Computed example of a mutant assay.
Amino acid sequence: MTTAYARVGGLDADEPRARFLDLVAAEWIKLRSLRSTWIAYGATALAVVAFNAGTAYDTYNYWPERSAADQADYVRAGIPLQEAFTANAAMVMMLALGAIGAVAITGEYSTGTIRTTFAAVPARRSVMAAKAWVVTAVATVFGAIVAGASFGVTQAILDGRGAGISLSYPGALRVVVASALLAPVCAVVGMAIGSVVRLTSATMIASVVVILVLPIVLDDGRHWSAVAGHATLYQAWLRLVEVGSPRTDFPWTTGGAWTVYVVWALTAAVLAVTSAQRRDQ
């Protein structure tokens, strides 16, 4: 007498493998179902726009104290572009998005749900690729909204004094795009660090060091330090939003700065996707 047993959950040999779009949908459900994710994005957006708007309002408030020559030089020198997205705002967004990207993976490791994920889909690279795709897509939309809103708000404030500029102003679009792309690049970098370190606290420290501390430590005082600094995201952003010719002994091009963005994004994505393949859960 023989007895046939069905596989648990009805998973037989003919069950189709999960498609990549299915994995993307699953990762999107994970991300949007966490209230903390949207709180973090919302708080970051408010902080970034507030930093930029506050700087523009200071200019608006003290504008009458400037001489006519200073007012003319202010616009001619492209200073409104510097207030469209300030360095403080860029630092806040870089750190926040790095943390959000890191938590997208360390959260699963800390709770142990990553074991369930890999048990359901043994193709770990596909899972991590789907997670990286979702994190990058959401961060890209977020960066575009925040950078666009910051530009619109700051220039509207400055326009009250006749100092605002439009998006067609030379270099304005580059400032907006470079600032917007900081968000997805930093998010995927944070995710890559989290996939390697796996511990939330250690990942946060490593993200701060990589994203913020290194660009500050590596200054333009020496050639090797300047070259190494140019390879960091923050200094690449500074070069892209810089008005006029570079004021440094070791100048570099905007093309080189865009290349830094691409290299960081691709390297981080590859690291995030492959890091879980040969390690235990």
Rank of each mutant, 00 (worst) to 15 (best):
T3H: 13
Y5N: 04
A6D: 15
A6Y: 06
A6S: 14
R7P: 15
D12P: 06
A13W: 07
E15M: 01
A18L: 12
R19G: 15
D22N: 05
A25T: 03
E27F: 02
W28N: 00
I29C: 10
I29F: 14
R32Y: 06
S33P: 04
R35A: 15
R35F: 08
Y41F: 14
A43I: 04
A43W: 07
T44Y: 06
V48D: 07
T55I: 00
A56R: 13
Y57H: 14
T59S: 12
S67I: 00
S67V: 00
S67H: 02
A68K: 00
A72W: 04
Y74A: 00
V75C: 09
L81D: 08
Q82E: 15
A87P: 09
A89M: 07
A90C: 07
A90G: 10
M93C: 03
L95G: 10
I100S: 06
G101E: 01
A102H: 01
A104N: 03
A104S: 14
E108S: 05
Y109G: 02
T111E: 06
T113L: 15
I114L: 11
I114A: 08
T116K: 03
T116L: 14
A120R: 03
A123C: 03
A123E: 14
R125G: 15
R125V: 02
S126L: 08
V127A: 14
K131G: 09
A132W: 03
V134N: 07
V134S: 05
T136V: 05
A137G: 04
A137L: 13
A137Y: 10
T140N: 04
F142Q: 01
F151V: 00
G152T: 00
T154V: 05
T154P: 13
T154E: 15
Q155E: 13
A163I: 00
A163H: 11
G164I: 00
S166V: 00
P170V: 03
P170Q: 13
G171C: 09
G171H: 07
A172Y: 10
L173H: 10
R174F: 02
V177F: 12
L181E: 09
L182S: 04
P184G: 12
C186T: 05
G190A: 03
M191T: 04
R198D: 13
R198T: 11
S201C: 02
A202K: 03
T203P: 03
V209K: 01
V209H: 09
P215L: 08
D219P: 05
D220G: 07
R222M: 13
T232S: 12
Q235E: 13
R239S: 08
R239M: 10
E242Y: 04
V243L: 10
P246R: 11
P246C: 08
T248Q: 12
F250Y: 15
W252H: 09
T254H: 09
T254Q: 11
G256L: 02
A257N: 13
A257S: 08
A257C: 07
W258K: 12
A265P: 10
L266F: 12
L266G: 09
V270D: 06
T274G: 11
S275K: 06
R279H: 15
